[in-house]
Design a protein around this nucleic acid. Structure first.
Lengths: 216, 216
DNA sequence: TCCCCGAACTTGTCAATGACAAGATGGGGA
DNA sequence: TCCCCATCTTGTCATTGACAAGTTCGGGGA
């Protein structure tokens, strides 16, 4: 795209967005330069500003896209544990989005597009705990589940738990972790009537790599 | 400190470090400018570089200090749940350190001072699960505990769960969350030999929101 | 068909910054 | 006392974000 015959790029907004994701995923949001993105897209140094206003605008657009992707990833998943797995998967598949989404100081907090997308994702998160009955405080359980998934995803992306996984698939590993939180309180998803310790805790390493087998 | 009679500052390293913490806590690491820190300390624009080499060096120093503070905060805490509470407290009391510590792209990963401090903190984290006996996989339980605490701390600092707390003290709230993970598997902490549990738990709201205070 | 209006992009500029080089200063040990 | 060298200063350059003003072009209306 460095050489371009037409005066108009045609799809500069998407091109800049895509390049931004590459840069962020590789070197973090701090390494992002509008002029560099312009060079990658083969346009003049001020062209990106026409679509995003400024650096904050670009990052806000990335975050909004991220929230929409997350909402889509969580939608239609009845089971809380599987929702957590999808949350972790989302972070792994969209590391750039994930990073930017949780860095408020980089974003224009009152951007309407951002707020709308964030609300969609938020609704999906709330829906995850809506069906819990055998838990004393559903909201608190929701915060616990979110914290566990978010913490694991963050530690994963910052390479703080990679070696601790011992080669196990991160999603499968998290599925196991989530079992420590909620499994025993959801007997309905257990195949047998003895949901206690045994079947819940062991699956980890015995059938490694398989991951996520049960999904109601 | 803007006016200074002596040629030598006296304690520029600490002054810059302190100013950096203020800026990071307020506006994030991205807003950090060596020249701005120099102005705040009342020295020339290149003075900070003599102590930290460059921006990455400064942030690496902040992260190293953070890991040491964290190791100190966790040391001497036998109980895993209380360790989690202290982890969250550390994040709240040292938000600037906490942010920088978990942003590898901003740091010089091979810095020996950083590595040593990180190892000390890592040892404390591992020690937290060393005494677990009634848990099938201690390492996995450790990752779960770390994920829960780290996720909650992160969501707290990014203002993603502030309103969900409903005015409750974050530490007390996390203590409750941690109960969802491990409480029933740690019967030894039941007796009244741990007086701070009581006072810490109750201030929130009535016991109803606490969930899981059941004895095993 | 033509034109013309606004979106898309360019060119030019300025202040701020990080990084580096080379010089000035002075405190404390030999 | 003297001088070494850590500490700090001055000077400079390339890069960047942000803004202003000009240029190109495509499609809708007359």
């Amino acid at each position: 795209m460095t050489t371009r015959s037409t005066y108009h790029h045609g799809d500069l907004r998407q091109a800049v967005l895509a390049a931004a994701l590459d840069v962020i995923a590789a070197e973090g949001p701090g390494a992002l330069s509008l002029r560099d993105l312009a060079r990658r897209a083969g346009v003049s140094h001020a062209a990106p500003a026409h679509h995003f206003k400024d650096r904050t605008g670009l990052l806000t657009a990335v975050a909004a896209e991220g929230y929409d992707l997350l909402a889509g990833a969580l939608a239609g998943t009845p089971e809380l544990r599987e929702r957590g797995v999808r949350y972790v998967r989302f972070a792994m598949e969209h590391p750039a989005h994930f990073q930017v989404m949780f860095r408020p100081e980089l974003l224009r907090a009152d951007d309407p597009v951002l707020l709308a997308a964030k609300e969609r994702a938020s609704a999906e998160l709330r829906a995850g705990v809506a069906g819990l009955e055998d838990v004393p405080d559903a909201r608190e359980a929701g915060i616990a589940a979110w914290s566990l998934a978010h913490g694991f995803a963050t530690l994963l992306l910052t390479r703080n738990v990679t070696e601790a996984l011992g080669g196990r698939d991160p999603e499968e590993y998290f599925h196991s972790l989530a079992g420590l939180l909620f499994a025993e309180r959801h007997p309905r998803k257990e195949p047998k009537d003895n949901p206690r310790e045994e079947s819940r805790d062991t699956p980890g390493r015995s059938r490694k790599g398989k991951g996520r087998d049960i999904s109601p």
